[in-house]
């Protein structure tokens, strides 16, 4: 699949924003001492909303007819993209109410803050889940059509969010909170495990072949002619192919940038290195999202000569 840069930016940024918001609210409402500071909460909230809004705006860039984008709210019953759009917009009033309650009332948990906070966290996770289900619901792409896809999106969103939260807290609070630090380390390991399981899983051959695609299931089938002498929409969208050795290099780059180096930087428990770790993770997740698209092989490729997907 062709990796549209706007979609990579969107999923990584909004994933981090939703993860940050959710973890921060849980920590605040659960009474974590380092998160009872309204400056930390407000700056975390603003950062999360900025990331989410930037991501959502970026997602509209890949539309070829954006003047009809407002209609995307209309098919909530059937379309995951529509559900994502609805939940993403519903998130804002609750998130702003929660932040307003902190802005005006301080970090003491009020009834309004509690209710708005819980709803914000739930909507954040729902939106992230819907984003992942857009991909996971496509039977045409074997590498996406799996419960591992939502697991990865949510795990990696929470992971990048936890790093941002720990970095922000240490920057404003002065010293690193040990519970946030442990949480970031644990989520880094969890994220890496989820990603590795996914990488092993997509390596296993399965699914449709050129034989089932053409209906000739008892003989070898080879493409002689694609039928068009120049490029087509289908080639641009689904024919995206990356050399196998480049994929391996990108996988290593992703593992190093998103998981290994941030983990090692976290072990130093220094505030400055923590910020670098958070930024490195975001860069690594961009590579991860690029791979998510580049390694996904749509079944239309079978009609264009691929023997398997």
């Amino acid at each position: 699949m062709h990796p549209a840069f706007s979609v990579l930016i969107f999923t990584v940024m909004s994933g981090a924003g939703y993860g940050l918001m959710t973890l921060m609210i849980i920590g605040h409402l659960a009474g974590l001492p380092q998160l009872q500071d309204s400056t930390v909460l407000l700056s975390g909230g603003v950062l999360a909303i900025a990331l989410i809004t930037g991501g959502l705006l970026s997602s509209t860039l890949h539309l070829t007819n954006p003047k009809n984008a407002w209609r995307a709210f209309s098919r909530f019953k059937t379309s995951w993209l529509s559900r994502e759009a609805v939940f993403a917009v519903l998130f804002y009033p609750f998130a702003l109410t929660y932040l307003a309650a902190i802005f005006f009332g301080g970090s003491e948990v009020t009834a309004l803050g509690l209710l708005a906070g819980i709803l914000t966290a739930v909507l954040a996770m729902l939106t992230l889940f819907c984003t992942s289900m857009i991909y996971a619901s496509l039977k045409t792409i074997r590498q996406w059509n799996s419960s591992l896809t939502p697991v990865n999106y949510i795990a990696l969103g929470l992971m990048s969010g936890s790093l941002l939260l720990a970095a922000l807290q240490s920057l404003i609070g002065g010293e690193l909170s040990s519970s946030l630090y442990t949480l970031a380390l644990a989520l880094l390991v969890l994220g890496a495990v989820c990603k590795l399981v996914y990488l092993f899983w997509i390596g296993k051959p399965a699914g449709s072949t050129i034989n089932t695609a053409t209906g000739f299931t008892q003989a070898n089938v080879r493409l002689l002619d694609q039928g068009h002498t120049s490029n087509s929409f289908l080639n641009n969208e689904f024919g995206y192919t990356v050399a196998a050795n480049k994929l391996v290099r990108m996988r290593l780059l992703m593992l190093v940038l998103a998981f290994v180096v941030p983990f090692l930087l976290l072990l130093t428990s220094s505030s400055v290195l923590l910020i670098i770790a958070a930024l490195l993770t975001l860069a690594g997740l961009l590579v991860e999202r690029w791979l998510f698209f580049a390694e996904a092989r749509h079944v239309v490729r079978l009609f264009h000569g691929d023997q398997t997907v």
Partner: peptide, 13 residues
């Protein structure tokens, strides 16, 4: 709105 999602869902191109 041109989001391409239907073309992704179609196995027949």
């Amino acid at each position: 709105m041109g989001c391409n999602l239907c073309s992704w869902a179609c196995p027949y191109g």
